[in-house]
Measured scan of single mutants.
Amino acid sequence: EDYYQILGVPRNASQKEIKKAYYQLAKKYHPDTNKDDPKAKEKFSQLAEAYEVLSDEVKRKQYDA
């Protein structure tokens, strides 16, 4: 799945936009606030993985290549 789609940001998003999108979605899908939703944990880990790659310039360049 596309990391940009997961975070809901365009491919040319700035680091600030990526961070903002991640924090909004992380708050929304955090397992502690969605105890009754088994998919929230999965969504949250996808968000974390996408953010880890896109927030790191080197990893992001490799991902975009």
Rank of each mutant, 00 (worst) to 15 (best):
Q24K: 12
Y3T: 01
K16F: 12
Y22V: 02
S55D: 05
N12W: 12
D2N: 11
S45I: 15
P38E: 11
F44S: 04
E17H: 10
N34I: 07
P31M: 07
E17Q: 12
A21I: 05
Q5H: 12
K16Y: 11
K28D: 08
L54N: 00
H30P: 05
A65D: 11
K27S: 12
K19N: 15
A26M: 13
D56Y: 02
H30K: 07
E42G: 04
R11G: 05
V9F: 01
A50M: 03
L7G: 00
A13I: 03
D56Q: 02
T33S: 11
K41Y: 15
S55I: 07
P38C: 06
D2V: 03
A26Q: 12
E42S: 05
Y29N: 05
V58L: 13
Y29F: 12
E1G: 14
S14C: 06
K41T: 14
V9A: 02
Y51I: 04
D2P: 03
S55R: 08
E42I: 07
T33Y: 14
K41P: 10
E17W: 10
R60L: 01
A50P: 01
Q15H: 09
L47F: 06
E1K: 15
E57M: 07
S45F: 12
F44R: 06
D56A: 02
F44K: 03
D2R: 03
T33N: 12
A50V: 10
D36P: 04
H30N: 13
K16W: 10
E57T: 14
K41N: 13
K39R: 11
K41A: 15
K61Q: 13
K39E: 15
A50L: 03
D36M: 06
K28T: 07
K20M: 15
D32V: 10
A40R: 05
P10F: 06
D37C: 05
K20Y: 13
Y4G: 00
Y51H: 04
Y22L: 02
V58K: 05
T33D: 14
T33K: 11
V9I: 09
N34E: 07
D2C: 07
Y51V: 03
E17T: 13
P10W: 05
A48C: 10
E57D: 12
E49K: 15
E49V: 13
P38M: 10
R60Q: 02
A13K: 00
K27Q: 11
L47R: 01
D37Y: 03
Q24C: 09
L47Q: 03
G8Y: 04
V53G: 02
S14P: 08
P10G: 09
L7Q: 00
K16R: 12
K35T: 12
N34T: 08
K41E: 14
A13F: 02
Y22W: 08
V53Q: 04
K39V: 14
A65L: 11
E17Y: 06
V58A: 15
A48G: 13
E1W: 15
E17I: 09
K59N: 05
R11S: 10
Q15M: 10
E42C: 08
Y29E: 02
A50E: 00
Y29H: 07
Y51W: 09
K41S: 13
Y29W: 11
A48T: 13
G8A: 07
D32E: 14
A21M: 08
K35H: 15
S45R: 10
I6M: 10
D37E: 05
G8F: 05
E57Y: 07
D37W: 03
Y29L: 13
A48R: 15
I6W: 06
Q46S: 06
E1D: 13
N34W: 15
A50H: 00
Y22K: 01
Q46H: 09
A21R: 07
E57I: 11
A50G: 02
A65E: 15
S45M: 15
P38L: 10
Q46D: 06
K20P: 01
K20T: 13
I18D: 00
V53S: 03
S45C: 10
D37A: 03
D32Q: 08
D37M: 03
E49S: 09
N34G: 07
N12V: 09
